[in-house]
Structures are given as structure tokens and as C-alpha cells.
């Protein structure tokens, strides 16, 4: 892989109009979620678990938006390849091996999502006026990026399954967005009762969102959370790669 930088540039295609639209959409989405959950909900519910609602939901909104971006990028990428089968041949018939192609694709999605993570966090901090420790912010970003690996792999697997089952991507997106919302963006997982509570608490997206909140607000995270997210990212990467490899050989 001599040309990694050129490959990434050619795939990210930094065109001013497209990049501008992506940035604008991100800012508007972030501002709208802020308006609903912090300004609007904050009137009724000023604190969650004794923490100011702004501080509580801010990392949740950032994690939610960026997870949605990473999941959608992977899913749409898979759909794009699924309905333009020649694109796989375009890459497969180059000197790169499948694992290299897959690594590059995952890296590109991670770079794009990482860009959205930084943008969303900065926009939220500006419009909320909340101040967080810079080190905490960096740790939050790094932890989220680690978790985005499994979110994007989840997107790849969902994309392949949905394309095989001829399910439209919109339905997958609606379901996943609701699922992500359940994972501690607003309501802490500890508030859900019984089996549902257990399932939500140990769901990897919840561990990612709630761990991210702990990092941004306090700069600390449970070691188990970190190992869980790292382990899940590694395992999901290899599972998704295996499924992708089989899929490209169809």
C-alpha cells in the first residue's frame, strides 16, 4: 500500500461544495438537537442525576450524531457498492488485497466520522457556552473514535444483510436511530427496569455513550468500559471483514 494518502484523498474527494454542505448539515443538526433536548427539555427538566441537563446531554448529542454519521456512511457505502457491483471490481482488480481494501474503507469512514465528531463537539460547546477541560475533550474524542470502529462495522454488516434481504436502507436507518436514542443519550440506562434495563446497560452503544459522558464530564472512565469497547471494536472489525470478504466473492 504505497499510495495510502492518495487513495484516501481520492475516496474522501474534498470538494468545496460537498464539504460545505456536510459541514452546514452537521451544524444545523447539532443546533436542532440542542434546541430540542437542552433548551426545550431543559425548561421542564433542569437536571438529570443532579447534573445540569446541558452538561448531561451535550456529550450524548455529540456521540449520537457522530454514531449516526458513522453508521450511515458504512451502510450507504455498502448499498452504493451493492447496486453498482462494478465498483467492487474496480478496486478488487487492483494490486490491493481484500483485507487492505477493507482496512482503507474502514479508515476512510473513521476519518470522515472523526471530522464530524470534532465539528459537532465544537459547535455544541460554542452554542451552549459550557466549558470542559481540554484534556477531557481529547479523551472523549479518542474514546468515541475507538467506539466508532464497531459502529461502522455494525453499518457494514447491516448493509450487507439488508442488501441481501432487499430491505431499503431507510428502514434500517429509522430502526437504528431509535435504537441509538435508547442507549443513554438522554435517559440513563440505569433507569430502565428489569431485563430491558440489563440489555440496554450492556449494549455496546450504551457503554460507548455513557463512557464518553464520564470522560467529558469527569475525565475518568471505568477500565471495564474501555476494554469492552476496544474488544468489541476489534471483534466486530474481523467479523465484518469476514462477511465483507464473502460478500465480494459472490
Amino acid at each position: 500500500m504505497e499510495n495510502v494518502f492518495e487513495i484516501i484523498l481520492s475516496e474522501i474527494k474534498p470538494k468545496s461544495l460537498r464539504a460545505g454542505l456536510a459541514i452546514l448539515t452537521n451544524i444545523l443538526t447539532t443546533a436542532l438537537l440542542y434546541l430540542v433536548f437542552i433548551t426545550g427539555l431543559g425548561q421542564l427538566l433542569p437536571r438529570i442525576q443532579f447534573i445540569n441537563i446541558g452538561l448531561w446531554i451535550l456529550p450524548g448529542i455529540a456521540a449520537y450524531i457522530v454514531s449516526a454519521v458513522a453508521f450511515n456512511l458504512s451502510l450507504r457505502d455498502l448499498y452504493h457498492y451493492s447496486f453498482n457491483s462494478g465498483l467492487i471490481d474496480q478496486i478488487q482488480s487492483t494490486p490491493l488485497l481484500t483485507y487492505q481494501v477493507y482496512f482503507l474503507k474502514s479508515l476512510i469512514i473513521l476519518i470522515k466520522s472523526g471530522g464530524h465528531l470534532i465539528l459537532t463537539s465544537v459547535v455544541l460547546l460554542i452554542i451552549s457556552g459550557v466549558r470542559v477541560h481540554f484534556i477531557n475533550l481529547i479523551l472523549f474524542w479518542l474514546y468515541l473514535i475507538l467506539g466508532l470502529i464497531f459502529i461502522s462495522q455494525f453499518g457494514v454488516i447491516s448493509g450487507i444483510l439488508a442488501a441481501k434481504l432487499k430491505i431499503r436502507s431507510e428502514f434500517v436507518i429509522i430502526f437504528v436511530m431509535a435504537l441509538f436514542m435508547l442507549c443513554g443519550v438522554i435517559v440513563p440506562s440505569s433507569e430502565y427496569p428489569g431485563l430491558l434495563g440489563i440489555m440496554i446497560r450492556y449494549f455496546p452503544v450504551t457503554v460507548l455513550f455513557e463512557g464518553g459522558r464520564d470522560l467529558m464530564l469527569g475525565g475518568n472512565i471505568s477500565g471495564i468500559y474501555l476494554i469492552y469497547v476496544a474488544g468489541f471494536s476489534i471483534v466486530s472489525y474481523f467479523i465484518a471483514f469476514f462477511i465483507f470478504r464473502q460478500w465480494t466473492r459472490r
Binding site: 504505497e2 499510495n3 492518495e6 487513495i7 484523498l9 481520492s10 475516496e11 474496480q90 478496486i91 487492483t94 494490486p95 490491493l96
Partner: peptide, 10 residues
């Protein structure tokens, strides 16, 4: 350009 990048053409 994309294909060239994948083929290792600078």
C-alpha cells in the same frame, strides 16, 4: 485518479 491511486500511480 481514484483507480490510479489504487494502482500505485503517484
Amino acid at each position: 485518479r481514484k483507480r490510479a491511486a489504487y494502482l500505485g500511480i503517484k
